[in-house]
Nucleic acid binder design. Structure first.
Lengths: 355, 355
DNA sequence: AAGCCTGTGGAAAGCGCTTTCCCATGCGGT
DNA sequence: ACCGCATGGGAAAGCGCTTTCCACAGGCTT
C-alpha cells in the first residue's frame, strides 16, 4: 500500500511563487522560464515566449530564490568584507570603496567585524566560505600571532579550491592578492619631517602591537630615525588601542613619563585627536611646544584643532583596488601585490621644535 | 537504450566535500551526519556516532553549504542592512549597533548602500528578499517621494509573506516595526536653547529635503520657533547634502545672503563642521558672533573647534534596538514603534547672542 | 510473557533552480 | 525534392541539505 507522504522536504509551501508557477502561468516549460528570467545560459529564447514569461513573472510578483540559484550554479552573488570595526572611519572608508566595486559587479556584500580578534577573523572567513561567497576581502591587517598565519593560509587555500578568491589589505604572510598600503614609507616620511623641523625627542602613540599594520608603521619610524643617526627608545613608545580615548590616555601617560618630548607621532588620526585633547588639558601649546602627526588622513583630520598634519592613505581607493584585484582578473594565477603609497599632508599641528 | 547522462546539474563536481562524503567516511547515514553537524532538529544522536561524524568532518575539512541549507530550510542565516552611505559616520554607528545584535544571533549581515536613491533602496530590498534574508533593517530614513511609500509597502508586504521581517529607523509611512529617533523634539530643543540665549536671527543649514529625517528636524525647529512667537523664514533655510563640504558652501551662501544671522542650526554634525570652517574663513568668531549647533553628536563633534554643541542621538543603540525588535520577538504581530529620545549636548560652539 | 513506549538510525522526498540532452521544427543547399 | 543543419523548446537529472516517516532495539509495565 502506498501512503501519501506529506512533504518530506521542509519549507512553508504556502503558495510561494516559484519559477515553475511562472512557467505554468506563461504556458512554457521550467527551462524556458529559467532562461528568460535568469541569465540565458548562452541560449536564445524567442521574443513571444520571452514576453509571456516576463508578463507572468510580473503578475505573480515572482522573486527569484537566491539560495536555490546559488546551489544550482555552485556560486553565489555575494562577496565578503571582513574588517576590524565598522564604526572605525578607517574601515568605513575602505568599505565604501569596496562596495562601489561590488555594486558595479552586481554583487551583494556581507560585512563582518572581528574587533581585532584573530579567532573571529578565521571564523568569519569560514562562514563566508560556507556561504559560498565569490570573493572575500580581508580588510583588517594581519596579526603577528604565529599560529594565525598558517591557519589563515589553510582557510584561504580551502576557499580557493572551492572557487572563491581572497584579497588582503596589507600582507598577512600568506600568498594571496593584496593591496599594500605604504605604512612603512609613510611613517618614515613623517618621522623625517619631524626631524627636519628640529625635533629630537620624538614619541610614538602606538596601536595594538599584535597588528601587522602597527608593526610596519613602527618599523618605518624606527628605520627613518636610525637612518638619521637617532634611535627610538622603548620608553618613548606607548601602546594604545587605535581609539581617540586610548590616544588621550596614552598621551597623558607619555607626558608624565617623559615631559621633554617635543613631537608626538600617533599611529592613526583617532589617537592623534586624543593626543591633541590631552595636550590641551595639559596646557601644552600645539605646535609651539609639541608637534603632533597622525596617520590615515580621515576626513575629520582637517577639522581638528589645530588642523592635523597626517600621513594620508587613499582608503577608498584601497578598498576599491583590493576588490577589483580579485573580481576583475581571471584566476590565472599568480598572487599580485599592488602598492599604494602614503603621502604626508602638512597642516597646522606641526612646527619647528622649540629651543 | 539507456545512455549515461553526464551531470545535468551544474557545479564543479571536483571532489567537493559534502555531507554525504562525511557520512560515508563516518559510516553513518546522511541523515545522521546532518543531525550531528547542523542543528539536531530536536533529535538526539548517540555519543559514539556523534564523535565519529565529527572526526570525519574534521579530517575531510568539511564546510557546510549555506545556500543548500537555506534552500532546504527555506530560511537563510542572513540579515540585511540598508543604509544611505557606509562612509557616513551616522550610518556606520547604526551599523555597528546592528551588527552586534546580528552577531549575538549568529547571523551574517549583508550591507547595501543606496546613496539616498529611493529606487536603489527598493532594488536592494528586493535583492535581499531574493536572498531570503531573515530580516532587513532599513536604516536610512524614508523619502517624501509620494510613489515611494506605496511601492515600499508592497515590497515589505511581499517580504513578510515570505517569512521575513522588516524594521525601520524612522517612520516611513508604512506599517512595520520601527525605531523612532526624536528628530523633531531634539531639533525643537536646540531651537529653544538658541532662543533662550537671545538669538533671534536663526538660520538652518538643512539636509536633502527629500528625506523624512530632514522634514522632521525642520518641522521641530519651525514648531519651536512658532511656539515662541517667531517664524522661520524660507530665506533662512539653505539646503545642503549632509556632507561637510556641502555644509561649508551652504553656510558661505547663507552668510552672503543674510549677514546678520547670529545662530546657525546645522541638521547634522558633518555640515556643522563645514559651517564652522566657513565661519572661520569669513572671520566670524564662534560663538561670540555666531553660535552653531549640530545634530547627531558624532564622536568627532567634541573635537571640532570650538567643541560643537549638538543634539545627541544614541546611534548604536538605535541600530541595536531596531534589529532586536524584529529578531527577538515572535511575529505575533502588531508593528511596534520604539521612540528613542534625542538630548541636547551643550559645548563651546554656542553662546549668548551678540547685541 | 505479551504489549508498549522511548530512543536512535536510515531511506527518501523534496526545497527551487540550472543545464544537459534530446527532439521537433523550419530552412537553405545541391 | 531530399538531406542536413541550425534553432528554439522541453524533460529531467541533479546541486547539498533537511526532515518526515518508518524500522528496530531494548527496557518497562501489567
Amino acid at each position: 500500500m502506498v501512503k501519501a507522504r506529506s512533504r518530506p522536504g521542509a519549507a512553508a509551501t504556502t503558495g510561494a511563487v516559484t519559477l515553475s508557477s511562472v512557467a505554468e502561468r506563461a504556458g512554457v516549460s521550467l527551462a524556458t522560464a529559467s532562461r528568460v528570467l535568469h541569465g540565458s545560459g548562452g541560449r536564445a529564447v524567442g521574443d513571444a515566449l520571452r514576453a509571456r514569461v516576463f508578463a507572468a513573472a510580473q503578475q505573480l510578483g515572482y522573486v527569484s530564490n537566491g539560495p536555490a540559484q546559488a546551489l544550482a550554479r555552485a556560486s553565489s552573488s555575494v562577496v565578503g568584507l571582513v574588517v576590524h570595526d565598522v564604526a572605525d572611519p578607517y574601515f568605513s572608508a575602505i568599505a565604501a570603496g569596496a562596495m562601489r566595486v561590488a555594486r558595479a559587479h552586481d554583487l551583494m556584500v556581507m560585512v563582518a567585524a572581528t574587533f581585532r580578534d584573530p579567532e573571529l577573523e578565521l571564523e568569519y572567513l569560514a562562514r563566508l566560505r560556507a556561504q559560498r561567497a565569490r570573493a572575500v576581502l580581508l580588510a583588517g591587517s594581519g596579526f603577528t600571532d604565529p599560529g594565525y598565519t598558517s591557519r589563515l593560509a589553510a582557510q584561504i587555500e580551502g576557499f580557493e579550491r572551492q572557487g572563491g578568491r581572497v584579497a588582503l589589505v596589507g600582507q598577512h604572510g600568506v600568498p594571496a592578492d593584496a593591496v599594500l598600503p605604504g605604512h612603512r614609507e609613510g611613517a618614515a616620511e613623517a618621522a623625517r619631517y619631524l626631524w627636519e623641523l628640529g625635533h629630537r625627542r620624538i614619541a610614538v602613540v602606538c596601536g595594538p602591537r599584535a597588528l601587522e599594520t602597527v608593526a610596519h608603521r613602527l618599523d618605518g619610524i624606527r628605520e627613518a630615525l636610525r637612518g638619521l643617526g637617532a634611535d627610538l627608545a622603548e620608553r618613548d613608545v606607548v601602546e594604545a588601542d587605535f581609539t581617540r580615548s586610548g590616544g588621550r590616555t596614552a598621551t597623558l601617560e607619555l607626558l608624565r613619563r617623559n615631559p621633554g618630548v617635543t613631537a608626538i607621532l600617533a599611529l592613526n588620526d583617532l589617537m592623534a585627536a586624543g593626543a591633541l585633547a590631552a595636550l590641551r588639558e595639559e596646557r601644552r601649546a600645539v605646535p609651539a611646544e609639541v608637534s603632533v602627526i597622525g596617520f590615515d588622513d580621515l576626513p575629520q583630520a582637517a577639522d581638528l584643532h589645530p588642523a592635523l598634519t597626517t600621513v594620508r592613505l587613499p582608503l577608498e581607493e584601497i578598498g576599491e583596488r583590493a576588490l577589483r584585484l580579485i573580481l576583475e582578473e581571471e584566476p590565472g594565477y599568480a598572487p599580485r601585490a599592488v602598492p599604494v603609497p602614503a603621502t604626508l599632508v602638512m597642516r597646522a599641528s606641526t612646527g619647528p621644535a622649540p629651543r
